[in-house]
Design a binder for these strands. Structure first.
Lengths: 321, 321
DNA sequence: CACGGCTCTCGACAAAAGTCAAATCTGCCT
DNA sequence: AGGCAGATTTGACTTTTGTCGAGAGCCGTG
């Protein structure tokens, strides 16, 4: 990690510009280079996280709805992305917000568990760079061989890259064909250590998957549409880090789950800050299951989903009384 | 702390501009206001810490000299402001650097002890705003009645204001006329609690004062030039949070110190991160004393001072062998 | 040693952001 | 209701910044 001569220059330029508030041409004359170069250096500085521009996400927690959600579901913090006005694509909105929230939650020296999925990868993709050197990003579950760009290891690596952190991948398949093999693999020292290390994380980032034919588990061939359907009728309500959970947020007792290599839910629950991000409105039930199972403490969702959650809680309350 | 309607707008504008990367005119049309207003909002957002622009101070620790200082004096981290090229005023350079380092060291929920002096106030003055809501800034020592703008309470309040944090001043004089009175005042519940709370701080910010006629203690009338001179011959080497220390960094046994209301050195040493900033080259001996006494773990100084420290250590080493 | 291929740098132009005085709005007092 | 003081907003203008293609320097290779 020796600092290249150019990096030194970028650093100096960034310092003079952002910390001292000089103009670009002043910086240029200080460093005896052209202003155009300064502009380029500054862009690089922003891209590599030498300078950090972060905007408070407080606006999105201040919302009354967010507060009520925190109260009714016992969550530590909820962020709600306004559905309507802002940008063309509402789900991008959620991802942008989630990325900011994530960066706000990360601290130096943290160990971060990352699951996989389109949502997680989208977040990684738009997340700005930061310079947290002694952070470790660990992969929460095994890999799928599919050619998707949001494979578990990709998610982990991309986030590690953005944070300038260490990425700890693990190269085991997510699902094996027999329970015995899975058990054997889980006992392998390399794998065992990685899985044991999950509980030591300070922060986790994941989404929740739906139990339907569109699930990545189906798309990647881990389960057939028919199997998925069968699991659903057995009570499957969602997918967390590759594992099927029921409506109470517990691991569903089924062959599939026993063949999976992934962090145990108990380990996940041991992580202090569990950030769950849900983009799709269709993932209402999966989300409910995850929340019921105490699988998240911090939540980023869209306004519409927020409403549905509150309504649901209201009705459940009425029924109970 | 109800959010004024305008603040909401500022927040939204900042979000769209900095997080989503829209241009100002795009933001303007989104929010149905003129672009000029957006520009103004954004300035306010930066000023109030809704957006945070911070540049890594790593450049200044990467220095070989800084590393050697860390090693030879057993410090956690050292930052060295390059003396020559950068700006007109080298001591401003140090303060700018110190402010950035300080902001980098502060974490949410921290309790911060702040002493006083021109250096500390300069830092407070140029420090950019941040939005750390549950941070407490506590004053480390009593006040002086002088009309200086860098009175202890001013320093504390200004820093608290910049961080959007709670400021805990304490209104006792720094020096009393008799030891009995000081003892009595220290026993006062309000004062006692405040002093006891110092050891709970996570971070301290102070400089070190010189023992000469230019000292603020003299300028503010706490000591006469003659008394100062007398203390010097008794072994006074520096001033920390209003107290006189000897060359070993211990409290000097003298009447003055017994009449002072300030945090005990033991409490200061109990603080995990003790950030000391020294601007003036003349404060070489005071700094040595402070370092010897373990009163700082993190150090921000100029290049010239860094050299002197290293040379001194080198010579001391030679003499010893 | 000449030749591509490569990155880095610069000048000039276009785009974006900052600024200021005038206009408008707002609440409040008479 | 009128009018005044303060803050807020705006349009027009200036300054600053981003970008692009051209050119310069640098290396390994044929």
């Amino acid at each position: 990690m020796a600092i290249r001569p150019a990096e030194q220059l970028i650093h100096k330029a960034a310092w003079l510009y952002y910390a001292h508030g000089l103009r670009q041409d002043e910086v240029a004359s200080q460093l005896n280079i052209s202003r155009a170069s300064v502009a380029m250096y500054l862009r690089k500085a922003r891209e590599t996280g030498i300078v950090n521009i972060s905007t408070s996400t407080q606006l999105f927690t201040d919302d009354v709805t967010a507060r009520r959600l925190e109260d009714t579901f016992g969550l530590d913090a909820v962020w709600i992305a306004p559905e309507n006005a802002y940008l063309a694509d509402p789900s991008t909105d959620i991802a942008v917000l989630a990325a900011s929230v994530f960066l706000e939650l990360v601290k130096k020296g943290d160990r971060i568990g990352v699951a996989w999925g389109r949502t997680v990868y989208t977040i990684a993709d738009i997340m700005s760079y930061a310079d947290l050197q002694d952070v470790t990003v660990v992969q929460l579950c095994g890999n799928l061989g599919a050619p998707y760009s949001y494979r578990p290891d990709q998610c982990t690596m991309e986030i590690a890259r953005r944070l300038n952190a260490k990425g700890l991948n693990f190269y085991a398949p997510l699902v094996l064909s027999t329970e015995e093999l899975a058990q054997g693999l889980r006992a392998e020292p390399v794998i065992r250590d990685q899985l044991a290390g999950v509980a030591d994380c300070d922060l986790a980032l994941y989404s929740v998957g739906a139990v339907d034919a569109d699930s990545h588990l189906v798309k990647c061939g881990a389960l057939s549409p028919a199997e998925m359907e069968a699991l659903r009728s057995q009570g499957a309500a969602g997918v967390i880090a590759g594992q099927i959970i029921d409506a109470k947020g517990e691991v569903l007792d089924c062959s599939y789950n026993r063949r999976v290599i992934s962090a145990e839910l108990a380990s996940l629950r041991a992580i202090e800050k569990r950030l769950m991000v849900v983009q799709e409105d269709t993932k209402f039930e999966p989300l409910l299951a995850a929340v019921a199972g105490g699988l998240c403490t911090h939540l980023v969702i869209g306004a519409h989903m927020a409403e549905r959650l509150l309504n649901h809680a209201g009705e459940a309350g009425k029924k109970a009384s």
